[in-house]
C-alpha cells in the first residue's frame, strides 16, 4: 500500500510540474509585451527597457522558467506588479480568509447534506425524501452568484438578520458559507442517499437485522460505515476545491481570499500574482485528489488488501 501511495505522490508531483509549465507558457504567449500592458502604450521606452531587464524578461524563456521554478520551490513567487508586495505574502494573507470561508462552507454543506441524505434514504419515496431531493437538485443547478444574491436580498435586506455592509468578524462569513456550501450540500445529499440505499440492500444488513439489531443500530454500526466511503472521497475533493479559491463567492461578498486575489491579478494585469495564485490553487486541487485517493485506499479493506497482494 505504501508503494502505491508513493507512486501516486510521484504522479501528482509530475502533474504539478506540468501545470507550472502550462501556466508559464499560457501567460507568456500574451499578445504584446507584459511590461507594455502594465505601463500603458505610451510609456517611456527607456523605462520599459530598464524594467524588462530588472524583471529578467529579456532572458530566454527556459532560463526564466527554471528561475521561476527554483523560486516557487522555496516559496518565492516573485513580486506583484500591481500591489508591490511579495506574491507569497499576499497569498498567505488571502489564504487565511479562504480557509475560514471554506471550513465554514464545508461544515454547513456536510452537516446539511449528510443528514438530509440519510433521512431521504431511510424514508425512501416518502414526503421528506422527495422534498430533500427536490431541494438538493435546485442546490446542484443554482449558479453560486444566484444563491449569494438571493441570500443577501432575503437575509440582509428584507429580514435584517445579518448586516448588509461587509463585516470582518464571524458574522460576515455566515451568508458566504451558505452560498458556497449550497451546491456541495446538494451533491453530498444525493450521493449519501444513493450509496446508503445501495448498502441497505446488502446481505450483511439482513444478517444484522436477523440478529436483532434495531433500525438505528443497523444504520450506524453497519450501513453508514460502508456508505460513507464514497461520500468521504467527495468531501475531500470538495474541500480542496473550496480551498483553491471560491472566485465568484469571494468576489460577491468582498472576501479577500485566493479567488478574489486571482480576479484582482487579472484586472491589474499582474502576471506574477496571477501565476502564483493559479499555481497555488491547482496545487491544492492536486493535493486534495491525492488525499481522496489515499483515503480510499486506506479505508477500504478490499483495496487495502488488494494492493498488498
Amino acid at each position: 500500500m505504501l508503494l502505491n501511495i508513493a507512486k501516486r505522490l510521484a504522479q501528482a508531483l509530475l502533474v504539478l510540474l506540468g501545470v507550472a509549465l502550462a501556466v508559464f507558457i499560457m501567460l507568456r504567449i500574451i499578445p504584446g509585451n507584459a511590461i507594455i500592458t502594465m505601463m500603458g502604450e505610451h510609456a517611456d521606452p527607456v523605462i520599459i527597457d530598464r524594467m524588462t531587464e530588472e524583471l529578467g524578461l529579456n532572458e530566454p524563456i527556459t532560463v526564466q522558467f527554471l528561475r521561476y521554478l527554483k523560486g516557487a520551490v522555496t516559496g518565492d513567487f516573485g513580486t506583484s506588479y500591481s500591489m508591490h508586495r511579495s506574491v507569497s505574502e499576499l497569498m498567505g494573507a488571502a489564504f487565511g480568509n479562504t480557509v475560514k470561508l471554506a471550513l465554514a462552507a464545508a461544515i454547513f454543506a456536510w452537516l446539511l447534506g449528510i443528514v438530509s441524505g440519510i433521512i431521504a434514504a431511510v424514508r425512501k419515496n416518502g414526503l421528506l425524501d422527495r422534498l430533500f431531493m427536490g431541494v438538493s437538485l435546485l442546490g446542484v443547478s443554482m449558479p453560486v452568484f444566484m444563491t449569494a444574491m438571493l441570500l443577501q436580498y432575503v437575509f440582509a435586506y428584507l429580514l435584517h438578520w445579518v448586516p448588509i455592509s461587509r463585516v470582518t468578524d464571524w458574522r460576515g462569513y455566515i451568508l458566504p458559507a451558505i452560498a458556497l456550501g449550497w451546491n456541495s450540500a446538494g451533491s453530498i445529499a444525493r450521493l449519501t442517499r444513493s450509496t446508503l440505499l445501495e448498502v441497505l440492500q446488502a446481505d450483511y444488513i439482513d444478517t444484522a437485522r436477523a440478529k436483532g439489531r434495531g433500525q438505528l443500530g443497523v444504520l450506524t454500526r453497519h450501513a453508514l460505515r460502508n456508505a460513507m466511503l464514497p461520500v468521504l472521497t467527495m468531501m475531500a475533493v470538495q474541500l480542496s476545491s473550496m480551498l483553491s479559491g471560491a472566485v465568484i463567492c469571494e468576489t460577491i461578498f468582498s472576501i479577500n481570499g485566493i479567488g478574489r486575489l486571482a480576479v484582482q491579478a487579472i484586472s491589474g494585469r499582474d502576471i506574477p500574482l496571477l501565476q502564483g495564485t493559479i499555481l497555488f490553487s491547482t496545487a491544492l486541487v492536486i493535493l486534495g485528489n491525492f488525499v481522496a485517493d489515499s483515503l480510499y485506499a486506506v479505508l477500504d479493506p478490499r483495496i487495502r488488501r488488494g494492493s498488498e497482494s
Binding site: V15, V19, M26, V247, G259, I266, L274, T277, T282
Partner: peptide
C-alpha cells in the same frame, strides 16, 4: 488538475 473556472479565467 486546474480548477476549471481559474483555467477559463487565465485563458
Amino acid at each position: 488538475a486546474f480548477p476549471s473556472m481559474l483555467l477559463a479565467m487565465v485563458i
